[in-house]
Structure formats: structure tokens, C-alpha cells
């Protein structure tokens, strides 16, 4: 079946794909490498290897506090995003609602809205809200969570609507035919059948929030910065194995979260 020519084409294709994959992974590989250097200066080849930089990470107040804040914000924004997004997806897919397509577009809009624009506009919005209500919003946890929820909702809507569209509508009808009312049908049939979509939405929402940099830059306050901003500020000053070790910890945590999620829902089916 495969002539020499097509197998050559096959190799060229695989080669090109491999190069692209390598290009994507290269920065992660090097940052991981750097984390194990013995010397502090990132010069190649390394003089030797050491694990000492990993013990230096917990001593860096910015990294630790940034991690805790990112975790708090990520978890809260994901939960609120799910609470808002799952019912909305349900209504969009299962009911005919007025202006359905327009609502759908609106809910997905934050996904394509540039982080810089979101950040600046939310910054002025929070200032105006503070002036109007007297509540200290800017730089507060609540303000940060609200903003992050805004970028979590579109992920939830996108993944859960896709999951709903993919789930066989007739199993809901079957449940009703067997005597289940709408609420029972939702809890016993619909929800389990879209669980993979919800898990994926939770993961994507959390990671989007956890890694958000541009928008958060405008919304963090003094002494309250997220992990990506802590890393950015450190890198603006210098690159050394300590920040690399912090990055590796982040890579490992996110990788672990992905592998755990993958047990519930194959990532290749939801991305």
C-alpha cells in the first residue's frame, strides 16, 4: 500500500509535527533543567546539579503568598463560574429562549476579549464602583474573584454546552417515559451524562484563573499578588534556579491535576 513516495511524505509530516511539538515543550524543558543547576547563574553547561533551590522556594514570601492567593481565587472563581455557567448552558441547549444565540455569544465573549483590555476596563469599573458604594473593591479578594469568574464562565459555557449537545437527548426522554419528572430527570440522567463536561469545565476554568496574568496585573493590590505576577516580577529582576524551581513546582502541580482529570474525562475529547 505505501509506496516509497508516500512513506517519505509521511516521515516529512511526522518530522514537521515533531519539530512543532518540541518547540512548544522547549521552554518547559529548559526551565526544568535550570531548576536543578548547582550554580546560580543560568550559564551552560551547568557546573553540576543540586536540589537546594527547591528548598529556597518556600522561603520566598512572594511565591508562597502568591500561590495561596492564586489557589483561593482559582477555587472560588471556578465554583462561582460553574454555578452560573452550568444552568445557563442547560437553558441554552435544552430550552428555546429569546435571543439564545446573542446570549450565547455574550457568555463566550470574555474568552476572546484581550486580557489587557479586560484588566484596564475592570480596573476603572472597580474604581467607579468603589466611589459609588464606598466598598473597597480594587485590590480585594472579592474584586479579584469576580474578575476571574468572568473568564471562567465562558469556559464552562463552552464545554458544558458541547457536552450537552453531545449527550443523547433521547435518554432524557426515556427517563420521562419511565415516569421521571423534570427534576428527577436532571439529577439522575442529565447531570451524570454531562459530568465529563463539568469536570473539564472545572479544570479549564481553574487553570485559566490560576495562570491569568494580564488581567490580574491591574487588579491586584499591594501585598496581594498572584503567583504568575510574583513570577513575572521576579523574572523582570533576574532569572535564576529559584524561580525555575518555583516554575517546576507549578508545572508538576498542573500536570498532576491534568492526569487526575484525565481519569474522568479524556482531554483529547474535550479540548
Amino acid at each position: 500500500m505505501s509506496t516509497p513516495r508516500t512513506s517519505f511524505g509521511r516521515m516529512a509530516l511526522n518530522g514537521a509535527a515533531g519539530l512543532s511539538l518540541g518547540f512548544i515543550l522547549l521552554p518547559l524543558i529548559f526551565v526544568t533543567w535550570l531548576a536543578f543547576f548547582r550554580q546560580e547563574i543560568p550559564s551552560f553547561p551547568p557546573e553540576g546539579y543540586s536540589l537546594k533551590w527547591f528548598s529556597a522556594v518556600p522561603g520566598n514570601k512572594n511565591f508562597v503568598e502568591g500561590f495561596v492567593l492564586s489557589l483561593q481565587v482559582g477555587v472560588l472563581a471556578t465554583l462561582i463560574g460553574l454555578l452560573l455557567g452550568v444552568p445557563a448552558s442547560l437553558a441554552l441547549v435544552r430550552h428555546r429562549i429569546a435571543l439564545g444565540p446573542a446570549v450565547n455569544t455574550l457568555l463566550l465573549l470574555p474568552l476572546v476579549m484581550p486580557g489587557i483590555v479586560l484588566g484596564t476596563s475592570l480596573y476603572v469599573f472597580q474604581i467607579e464602583t468603589e466611589i459609588a458604594t464606598g466598598l473597597p473593591l480594587l485590590g480585594s479578594l472579592a474584586g479579584l474573584v469576580a474578575a476571574h469568574t468572568l473568564v471562567v464562565v465562558p469556559w464552562v459555557v463552552r464545554l458544558v454546552t458541547a457536552s450537552l449537545q453531545g449527550s443523547d437527548r433521547s435518554i432524557e426522554e426515556a427517563a420521562q417515559n419511565l415516569g421521571a419528572g423534570p427534576l428527577t430527570t436532571f439529577w439522575r440522567i442529565t447531570l451524570p451524562s454531562i459530568r465529563p463536561g463539568i469536570v473539564a469545565a472545572g479544570l479549564f476554568g481553574f487553570v485559566t484563573s490560576f495562570g491569568n496574568l494580564e488581567m490580574s496585573l491591574f487588579l491586584v493590590g499591594p501585598g496581594r499578588i498572584t503567583l504568575p505576577i510574583a513570577i513575572l516580577q521576579y523574572l523582570e529582576w533576574k532569572i535564576d534556579p529559584t524561580v525555575a524551581a518555583a516554575s517546576v513546582i507549578q508545572i508538576v502541580l498542573i500536570g498532576a491535576a491534568m492526569i487526575i482529570t484525565d481519569r474522568y474525562v479524556k482531554l483529547s475529547r474535550v479540548v
Partner: peptide
């Protein structure tokens, strides 16, 4: 890499 964030990946290139 998508999930890891831009700053970390920039650190890789800086190396």
C-alpha cells in the same frame, strides 16, 4: 504548557 502560563515559558526562553 498552555496551562503553565506565559511567565514560566518566558523563563524557559530566557534560559
Amino acid at each position: 504548557p498552555l496551562f503553565v502560563g506565559n511567565a514560566v515559558r518566558a523563563a524557559g526562553w530566557m534560559t
